[in-house]
């Protein structure tokens, strides 16, 4: 925060909730990508963006002013909250595993339909149905 005042921006340029707002905007970018894009890989990338935004939100909540990383030391009094760190740590690894699963499904979908565009898949489905 000092950084902003040093370079001449007024202190109110960085209100206390800014981190949450950035996380939410990132989340919405990911959400929009998932909804608007036809390409399945692009959708998975959008999900990834969304996911990372949630991580940022959680870690922002864990931050304590003047605290350090939660590794006990002799003359340190304030630590940031370890609980969200633990949750996000495992979430990242689980996230990559599920992303890999999604990508594997995409590869199989391309095998079956020859395309990874949602509309074309739907068209192929209807063709097969009639």
């Amino acid at each position: 925060m000092e950084f902003w005042t040093e370079i001449g921006l007024p202190a109110f340029a960085l209100p206390g909730l800014l981190n949450y707002w950035v996380a939410i905007i990132l989340m919405m970018i990911g959400f929009y990508t998932v909804m608007a894009h036809e390409n399945l890989i692009k959708k998975v990338i959008g999900l990834n963006i969304f996911q990372a935004a949630v991580f940022v939100l959680y870690i922002s909540m864990a931050k304590v002013d003047g605290g350090t990383a939660p590794i006990l030391g002799d003359d340190i009094e304030v630590y940031s909250n370890p609980l969200p760190h633990v949750l996000i740590l495992t979430a990242i690894v689980v996230g990559i595993a599920t992303t890999a699963l999604g990508l594997a499904l995409i590869v199989r979908i391309r095998d079956a339909y020859g395309t990874i565009e949602e509309e074309e898949i739907r068209a192929a489905e209807q063709e097969a149905g009639t």
Binding site: A69, I71, L89, T90, I92, V93
Partner: peptide, 10 residues
């Protein structure tokens, strides 16, 4: 003792 653990190491 420091940052690290099973998930990262793997």
């Amino acid at each position: 003792f420091g940052p690290g653990g099973g998930f990262q190491a793997g």
